[in-house]
Computed example of a mutant assay.
Amino acid sequence: MISQDRTLAAAGFIALYAVVIGFTDNYVRVIAAEAGLWQFHLTRSALALTILAVAARVLRLRLRPVNWRAVTARSSIHGAAMLIYFGALAFLPVAQVAAGLFTAPIFVLVISRFVYGERIGPLRVLAVLVGFAGVLLVLGPEAMAGASLAAALPVAAGLLYGMGNIATRAWCAQESAGTLLAGFFAALGGMGALGLILLGLFPLAVPEGADGFVMRGLVLPSQGFWFWTFVQAAGSLFAVGMMIRAYQVATASRVSVFEYIILPASAFWGWLLWSEMLSPMAVVGMALIALAGATIALGARTSAPPVATT
């Protein structure tokens, strides 16, 4: 059976992912004001897995992994990336953290070329570089300020995120989207539970509000926490499912470029919800991001070789 990488379909999946995640992530600031990172991940994962279990029963989705080791490894890598990303937000500017995470496509290209031997044409390399330049323009010059060990953490998150994206196709091509969703949320939920246990045994002095997001242990949550965490769980379940599907239908080095769309999507929701305005530099950056994505999509339509599958 002969098929082609469905790059345009993957772009559509990523667009849905970005719009939903851009909305839900704008409300993490509300959750962080009263609860902690670990309780948030444990609660969100429990809600997401409950919704997924009901959906699997109704829609007859397969959740049992074909390869337990591969799913566990992929889930742990992606989960660790998200923990580092959210944890770094406690003591670094959002712009700097986001810039580090969006180094992932660079790592995807390097790993795809030198580990898996994938041929990477100059057009795709240029598209990733243009997209990353657009990211820096959107985030502003402060994104590259301050080199330190702490500043390297978001880049570590980018490395792990890129590795997880490659693992989705290289290790887990036979797994269903439901299986990978369950593994992802189970890993994050387990990490959240472990963090709460450690903070219960070794409590820390916790600052008020969002400053105490990482150090805060178990608290009695309000109705607002439950509501926005449920929105996060349902939204993340759908959005991550779309992202997983994208990486299953096209190569990681192509799909990763489309993830840049999450920046303009988040900026749009930030403007709509919090009246946050974009600078002219940010608008230029978004244009570069769109150009990078279009270049990858058009190049894939005209030159992508067929891939034999069984």
Rank of each mutant, 00 (worst) to 15 (best):
L16Y: 00
I21D: 11
F23V: 02
T24Y: 12
T24S: 14
Y27E: 08
V28L: 15
R29P: 01
R29A: 00
A33E: 15
A33S: 11
A35C: 11
G36V: 10
G36T: 06
W38C: 13
W38S: 15
F40L: 15
H41G: 05
H41L: 15
H41S: 14
L42F: 15
L42R: 06
T43Q: 06
T43S: 14
T43I: 14
R44M: 15
R44T: 11
S45A: 15
S45T: 06
A48M: 12
A48C: 12
T50R: 05
L52A: 11
L52C: 13
A53F: 13
V54N: 04
V54Y: 05
V54R: 04
A55P: 03
A56R: 09
R57K: 00
L59E: 11
L59R: 14
L59Q: 12
L61V: 01
L61H: 07
R62T: 12
L63Q: 08
P65N: 11
P65S: 09
N67Y: 04
R69F: 11
R69E: 07
R69Y: 04
R69V: 13
A70K: 06
A73L: 14
R74A: 08
S75N: 02
S75E: 05
S75W: 03
G79N: 03
A80K: 01
A81M: 10
A81Y: 07
A81C: 07
M82Q: 13
I84D: 03
Y85K: 10
F86T: 02
A88L: 10
F91T: 08
L92G: 02
L92R: 02
P93D: 01
A95C: 00
A98Y: 00
A98D: 00
A99F: 01
A99T: 04
G100A: 02
L101R: 00
L101C: 01
L101D: 00
F102L: 05
P105A: 00
P105T: 00
I106G: 00
V108I: 09
L109D: 00
V110W: 07
I111W: 03
I111D: 09
S112A: 14
S112M: 05
S112R: 06
F114E: 07
V115S: 06
V115R: 09
G117Q: 08
G117V: 05
E118R: 13
I120Y: 04
I120E: 14
L123P: 02
L123S: 06
L123C: 03
R124E: 14
V125F: 13
L126F: 08
A127Y: 05
L129T: 02
L129A: 12
V130D: 04
G131E: 03
G131A: 09
F132D: 01
A133K: 04
A133I: 08
A133Y: 02
G134W: 06
G134L: 05
L136A: 03
G140C: 02
P141R: 06
A143Y: 10
M144C: 03
M144G: 10
A145W: 06
A145T: 13
